[in-house]
């Protein structure tokens, strides 16, 4: 039996007990954002000597998205303090993923601001180092935060399935959409537009909302990765081809530490969930040592 498999077997009961015991430890916190919107997050206090982990979910998802929630559970069981917010996306106490057809007025910037808020909240709640673990677009948002003015307590950004919103669309099409949005913004148009964005075939939003997300492309990510003020760990699924097969290599080429978990998809589900957890824990521990 491999060590990883042993750990899987060991972790499983822990996870199960964590699921059973979850209600005892999880705390749903509500905070009023500077925008006036009420945002919520699930907080679980862990060992004080371990860094707190802020988990950021994917595009328009919630903290209950399985990839993030299971990781939060795992980390909590591992003794880490975890904070899993649901980015409000302009909706107080958002509890469900926001459909593509919903009115999208939120922007990337607001999302990043909200990440800032939660990092600060976490720092106040649990002093000590903070590690942001992002998944999917949440990884990009976490990176953007890390490139901006991250909190001093931020130690690392672990980016799972670091992607943009292009989804390998035709560059000319993307350029056209971006150009259109810019024009609309320039004209001061407030009508909702509908463009494909990410997995949304029809992303109903203001042009600003669309542009805020759509303008981040791969080069931008690579650039950001080099600009991160904290170490960036990128973990990609070996089967995740959203960014192309060469994406991990490009990230490495950008000077990033990239790990590829063979066979894992974009969501690190099934048995790769344990790989995700293990790797996260491993990275967190390495962060501790460095501290």
């Amino acid at each position: 039996m491999s060590s990883s498999r042993f750990r899987q077997l060991l972790v499983l009961p822990c996870l199960l007990s964590a699921c059973i015991c979850q209600p005892l430890f999880a705390e749903t916190v509500e905070a009023r954002l500077p925008t006036g919107t009420f945002a919520t997050a699930e907080f679980r206090a862990g060992k004080p000597d371990l860094p707190a982990v802020l988990l950021i979910h994917g595009f328009m998802q919630t903290r209950d998205f399985p990839t993030v929630s299971r990781l939060a559970d795992g980390l909590a069981n591992a003794g880490y303090t975890t904070l899993s917010p649901t980015l409000s996306l302009g909706i107080s106490r958002r509890a469900s993923s926001l459909p593509c057809e919903a009115v999208h007025r939120h922007t990337q910037e607001q999302d990043v601001a909200e990440i800032t808020f939660w990092v600060n909240w976490l720092a106040r709640r649990k002093p000590g180092s903070v590690v942001i673990v992002g998944h999917s677009y949440g990884s990009l948002q976490s990176l953007i935060y890390a490139v901006g003015k991250p909190a001093p307590t931020l130690r690392r950004v672990i980016a799972f399935s670091l992607v943009d919103t292009e989804r390998q669309s035709d560059p000319r099409t993307v350029a056209a959409m971006l150009s259109d949005a810019k024009k609309r913004i320039a004209r001061g148009e407030t009508q909702l537009v509908s463009y494909p964005l990410g997995y949304c075939k029809q992303y109903v939003s203001t042009p600003q909302s669309f542009l805020s997300y759509a303008r981040w492309n791969r080069p931008d990510i690579l650039r950001l990765s080099r600009q991160s003020k904290v170490p960036l760990e990128v973990i990609m699924g070996g089967s995740d081809d959203r960014m192309g097969e060469d994406w991990p290599e490009k990230l490495r080429s950008a000077g990033n530490r990239v790990q590829v978990i063979a066979g894992a998809n974009h969501f690190f589900d099934a048995e790769h969930e344990f790989d995700m957890l293990d790797l996260t824990v491993s990275l967190l521990k390495s962060s501790e040592k460095k501290n």
């Binding site: 302009g90 909706i91 057809e101 009115v103």
Partner: peptide, 27 residues
């Protein structure tokens, strides 16, 4: 009432017309 988008409209009815006439009916 519990729907996120309902609260969204009540908090920000800028695009209420779209939401009422189209979004909510197709949701």
């Amino acid at each position: 009432a519990a729907w996120d988008e309902t609260r969204q409209q009540l908090e920000d009815p800028a695009y209420y017309a779209y939401w009422r006439n189209s979004r909510v009916l197709s949701s």
